[in-house]
Design a protein around this nucleic acid. Structure first.
Lengths: 354, 354
DNA sequence: GCGGTTTCTGTAAGCGGTTACAAGCCCGCG
DNA sequence: CGCGGGCTTGTAACCGCTTACAGAAACCGC
């Protein structure tokens, strides 16, 4: 439109306070085309210094900042990755997010958080299309088939600690091995009757941990009874109470996560049961809190933050690969297994009944 | 383009695996215009049932899901809010995010996380324009002027627990009152020489808490010395060590947050100092961990999750208001103050030196 | 059966950018 | 001085969706 050249005086129309200047405003004020403004801002192509300066001045004057949404639409790249988590309870997710953020911000990516509350939310997954470049999904309680059905087609995806998805990269925790190590350790310390507080039955990690615990117990020839918990402190408390009341015979408790272990630990202490002398306790995850409780909790340690970082790193690489050769479908890389290690602390030290 | 009507047979072009169908594909397959498809999907306007069915069938067949980015561009509404946090360390932010998510997901909003690492990141704030409808900003260590300069103009904003910004809604914690209550409580318990482990000097909350502590100490006529910490456990440990070594005379420690208090507590215990008999300890925030350490930590409790939820709620309302009357600039509502309450636990109980 | 409504539906102009393509400029060289 | 070619720059066509507007169709009573 060279029609309204009435404004040799730029007439800067920075729009009423509140609205933002667009690339067109900048172009008009600088007296150049929008393409040039775009070029200046994307720093590529050959732009003459003089124009560069003019544009930058105009932009500064108008307080122009590119509109991320518009840019992502035309570039087919949002610069954000979606993080899908089952819940936000406890330190585990705090650590996980911290690791993800570390990696993402290093790569200039944003994190769009989506929480799957109690089954709700799966259907919002598909709606992420066009809002993120990729997805890190952690949904240990979701049926893999249901999950697959709801995944948006476009974005790349990495699955974290849940039932493996075909054709995608899965980052798994060696739950079986970790749990087995913990139970073997308890048995070596003299435990004869171990109670395992498992996670919810529909939780993938919980299933694997339980299986690992059972395998190790039978290998060591010790008794193992399982009580299903929900990963929250309260279910640990309940078991601790029962053990203290002798309603449940046990000289060791292995919980499928730390919060339940801590619940049990606190309950035992409240009832005057000596830990680890009378009952040993071990957990899983090694959240920062584990070493702060008293006595400090033995736990199967996974570097949660590192795991989050890896997931993001893998995803970022997958996104980049896809960008280079968009033809091929999802890049199927070998799954990666995170190997935990047993962190022995006071709740299992010197059980002294061997 | 009615040029390529070669396809009376729909010829469905769902695009190669990986790419997503667009609204045009659906329109073509259903034999209607894109406007109609859009109407069907947005459920408004008058659409005849027959067409509705045709469109839905076509969409299902193609696995069509609207492109969130494109939609947000044309509607000038992203459905996401940006959450700007100083760091992701510890349980505080985990709780905060949990509360924010609760409120946001209830309102159908996504959370785009942005962390301001060590000063870096402020400049990315403006880039959020067009990616979010509003911002919840928590930046207690940032100069308010710097912050104001970097805020994107478009989105609404709520400031959380940081130096108040003019013309925006600020959600503040009564740091002064909370700290004063803690110190008064320590004094009432018999403390004569209190050490306050403050937060970083450039942190707004830290400054207020320190001032509150000092005011209460002088009101109660007890000595208060301040040692600057960094909100991490280690700075508490250091102070605990010094107190235990009598390098620092104190019969009570008040830390500006719980992690430092816990650090001090652990250090004291390690050195065999009886808490609270020899030295009482109190913290601030009342993170979930506070009641789990041994002895359980007295703390100035703020309902962190609720605070996050309120911030999001306020922001959502502001966004809605803005949408109704876009003319007026930022809606300036009265600031809201969150009043903490003292949660007395074992680390200050029965000091017995009154 | 017809004008006047009312109810659908399609066309096309955005939203705010990017970018292929072509036109314009400037330069040196023959 | 004219011309070819390399830099710059502008034009306009997208990206995928919404929506104002106008045209088409259906419905009404007479």
């Amino acid at each position: 439109m060279s029609s309204d050249r009435t404004d040799l005086v730029p007439a800067a129309v920075p729009a009423a306070r509140g609205a933002h200047a667009t690339i067109h405003d900048v172009a008009r004020v600088a007296g150049v085309s929008v393409a040039s403004v775009s070029r200046v801002f994307n720093g590529r192509d050959h732009v003459r210094a003089a124009m560069c300066a003019r544009v930058e001045e105009a932009a500064a004057q108008l307080g122009y900042v590119p509109h991320a949404g518009a840019r992502s639409l035309s570039m087919a790249r949002t610069g954000a990755i979606g993080v899908v988590l089952p819940d936000l309870h406890g330190e585990f997710y705090s650590e996980l997010l911290r690791g993800m953020d570390r990696e993402a911000s290093m790569r200039g990516l944003g994190l769009l958080l989506t929480v799957l509350h109690e089954g709700r939310g799966v259907d919002t997954l598909a709606g992420l299309r066009g809002q993120v470049d990729g997805l890190v999904v952690m949904a240990p309680e979701l049926d893999p088939a249901v999950l697959a059905r709801h995944m948006p087609r476009g974005p790349a995806a990495v699955f974290l600690a849940c039932a493996p998805q075909d054709g995608s990269l899965n980052l798994r925790i060696d739950n079986h091995g970790g749990a087995a190590a913990a139970v073997a350790h308890l048995a070596a310390g003299g435990a004869k009757r171990i109670v395992h507080i498992s996670g919810p039955g529909n939780n993938f990690d919980a299933q694997e941990r339980r299986a690992g615990a059972e395998a190790a117990a039978s290998a060591a020839g010790v008794a193992l009874s399982v009580i299903e918990g929900d990963f929250h402190e309260a279910s640990g408390t309940k078991v601790g109470d029962r053990v203290a009341a002798r309603t449940l015979q046990a000289d060791a408790i292995f919980a499928a996560n730390d919060m339940m272990a801590i619940g049990a630990l606190m309950a035992l202490k409240r009832h005057g049961i000596a830990v680890p002398e009378q009952v040993a306790v071990a957990g899983f995850d090694d959240i920062p809190l584990a070493r702060l409780v008293n006595p400090a909790l033995t736990s199967v340690a996974i570097d949660i933050a590192a795991m989050g970082a890896r997931a993001v790193a893998h995803l970022a690489e997958q996104i980049a690969a896809k960008r280079e050769r968009p033809l091929e479908g999802r890049v199927t890389t070998a799954d990666e297994v995170i190997v935990p290690h047993l962190m022995v602390r006071e709740t299992t030290r010197e059980t002294g009944r061997g």
